[in-house]
């Protein structure tokens, strides 16, 4: 019994410790972003890796999400004889919810895992220590460009997701099921307001920070993880953790952001 409480206490401390570490990590990373010198090339490179290389996946998933929305939406709306609202239904659900969330989930899977593994390997092979001993701040050198790239990429990827989704919805709702092309876009034009776009933008920015924060810090502190194994196994379990935690946080955060922004 006492053992049980001991374990509970140790677990609590461990998780508090870890949370605190992640908080400090975020603080130093954001601080190092605003500190000079500013180098543009690493940011471009990371934006390419995190953003540009994700475009294909985003277009693909965006198109199919839009198509399934078109399909489901058309059948549901036609029960009420409201097929004319299909355009705004597809656009609003994409812009407010699905775009930011699904784009963030895709980026987590594609780039977040890579970030975690890359930094984790640098940590276990003492490359992070080597940087520190050269008086080069690892936050500034490795992490800050990734944060900036995440903040730039996510809103743009979300926008691409939304647009391809709307096109996908059009393809199914109008092209295949025979809805009216004019009403598809005019209902959208009438119902989508700036506040909806604003909501999507805020969400995607927050998710951008969230993904990089969780994935980079899990990799950065891989040597302090408990019970996940060492070396290659440690990095792999940290990467798994990072992807799961990041995905769950995106969905949780989405709820809170929605309730605040509505």
């Amino acid at each position: 019994m006492l053992n049980y409480f001991e374990k509970l206490g140790a677990d609590t401390l461990y998780h508090l410790n870890q949370t605190g570490r992640m908080g400090i990590f975020l603080f130093y990373s954001l601080l190092s972003i605003i500190r000079p010198p500013y180098k543009i090339f690493p940011i471009i490179k990371q934006t390419y890796v995190i953003g540009a290389l994700s475009i294909f996946v985003i277009i693909f998933t965006g198109a199919f999400s839009g198509m399934v929305l078109g399909l489901q939406g058309y059948h549901t709306l036609s029960k009420f004889g409201a097929e004319g609202l299909l355009g705004s239904a597809v656009a609003l659900s994409l812009i407010r919810e699905l775009g930011p969330v699904l784009a963030a989930l895709m980026v987590t899977g594609r780039a977040g895992s890579a970030i975690c593994a890359e930094i984790g390997i640098m940590r276990i092979s003492e490359q992070v220590d080597a940087l520190e001993c050269m008086a080069i701040d690892p936050h500034k050198y490795i992490i800050a460009p990734k944060f900036i790239a995440g903040i730039i990429s996510l809103p743009l990827l979300t926008a691409i997701f939304d647009v391809t989704g709307i096109m996908g919805g059009y393809l199914v709702g109008v092209g295949m099921l025979g809805g009216n092309a004019g009403t598809y876009f005019s209902s959208m034009y009438k119902d989508v307001e700036f506040s909806d776009i604003y909501m999507g933008l805020v969400k995607s920015l927050c998710f951008g920070v969230l993904i990089i924060w969780i994935c980079a810090s899990k990799g950065y502190y891989v040597h302090l993880n408990r019970g996940g194994g060492f070396g290659a196994e440690g990095v792999s379990s940290a990467t798994t953790n990072a992807v799961v935690l990041s995905s769950v946080s995106i969905l949780l955060f989405d709820y809170f952001l929605t309730s605040v922004l509505l």
Binding site: E126, Q127, D129, M134, A135
Partner: peptide, 20 residues
């Protein structure tokens, strides 16, 4: 600490080269 480290030159036992 960073200022002190500007004076350092370090070779780690495993070399710790940046492998990418």
């Amino acid at each position: 600490l960073k200022d002190i480290r500007t004076n350092f030159g370090v070779l780690f036992q495993n070399s710790a080269l940046f492998d990418s």
